[in-house]
Amino acid sequence: MPALTDLTRLCPPPASPSPAPNWNRVEEELGMRLPQDYKQLMATYGPGEFCQFLSLHYPHAPREAADLTGPMPARLRQQIEEVRLSARQPWPLPHPLESLFAMGVTGNGDYLFWVTNPTDKPDTWTIAVNQALRAPWYTFTGNLTEFLLAVVSGTTQVPLFPEDLRDNGTSFTPAHPVRATAAPTEQRDSLDPTEIRKWARATGIPIPDRGRIPIEIIEAWKRANPAQLDL
């Protein structure tokens, strides 16, 4: 896979990545096959972050927001449609909603999707990027590894991504082990919902004035405000 070879030159993988999952089991859970390049990416890098900005979802992740096999992909499809239809002038989707499968996220809360069309030919799937569940969209004609290589090499500038993405160099940072100091509900309760709502509105992310804050907004806030998590 030439793209993966070039990507590892720019972003060296960890010496000992996390063990790859049982792909037969994962695909059986999902009810579909996954692209071969994604499986190779996971085997080479494991969970982590490219350029301290772009993270891929992976099977059976301990955090629901990053779990490729969890409810998040379906939930995001539903929320995209809810946000789209709530606008005064609903914008058209560049791809059928049912073909979008979330598999990554950025530090700005932008989501990466496979365009799973046709569903039985995963190695032909292209990549779509959505700005925080709203328009605009960006579509990349190529697989996920080719997309990552284009982004980190600078040959493609995704309009939704910051222009200074590569200013600090290209790198891959393995994910830290999940700390078991508190249950997810306890951690969520310790966060200040007022601050999260204030940040979301300033970022342009739609958020309800009352009630439970969606988990994907909480996770986006955590990625944007890591220093506050240690207070």
Rank of each mutant, 00 (worst) to 15 (best):
P2W: 11
A3M: 07
L4Q: 02
T5H: 14
D6K: 10
L7T: 01
T8W: 03
R9D: 12
R9I: 11
L10M: 07
L10P: 00
P12W: 05
P12N: 06
A15I: 11
S16E: 13
S16G: 13
P17C: 05
P17K: 01
P21V: 06
V26F: 02
E28Q: 14
E28H: 14
E29I: 12
L30Q: 00
L30I: 05
M32P: 06
Q36D: 13
Q36M: 10
Y38H: 07
Q40K: 12
T44Q: 03
G46Y: 00
G48V: 01
E49W: 09
F50E: 00
Q52I: 09
P59S: 04
A61T: 01
R63D: 11
E64N: 12
M72V: 08
M72A: 09
P73F: 00
L76K: 04
L76A: 05
Q79V: 10
I80V: 12
V83W: 04
A87F: 09
P92L: 09
L93R: 01
P94F: 06
H95L: 11
A102I: 02
M103N: 08
G104V: 03
V105I: 15
G107M: 01
G109A: 06
G109I: 00
D110L: 02
D110W: 02
T116S: 11
N117K: 14
T119M: 15
P122H: 04
T124Q: 14
A128K: 03
A128D: 05
A132I: 08
L133K: 03
R134W: 07
P136E: 04
P136H: 10
W137H: 10
Y138Q: 08
F140I: 02
T141Y: 13
L144T: 02
L144M: 09
T145D: 03
E146G: 07
E146R: 02
L148V: 01
L149K: 03
L149A: 06
A150L: 05
V152Q: 00
S153W: 00
S153R: 05
T155P: 05
V158L: 07
P159G: 06
L165F: 05
T170Y: 09
S171K: 08
A175T: 07
R179H: 15
R179N: 15
A180H: 15
A183H: 14
T185Y: 14
E186V: 13
L191Y: 09
L191F: 06
T194P: 07
E195F: 12
E195M: 14
K198H: 14
A200F: 03
T203S: 15
T203G: 10
I205F: 06
I205P: 02
P206I: 07
P206S: 09
D209K: 13
R210P: 09
I215D: 12
E216G: 07
E216W: 09
I217M: 07
W221R: 03
W221D: 01
A224T: 08
N225S: 10
P226S: 09
L229V: 08
L231D: 15
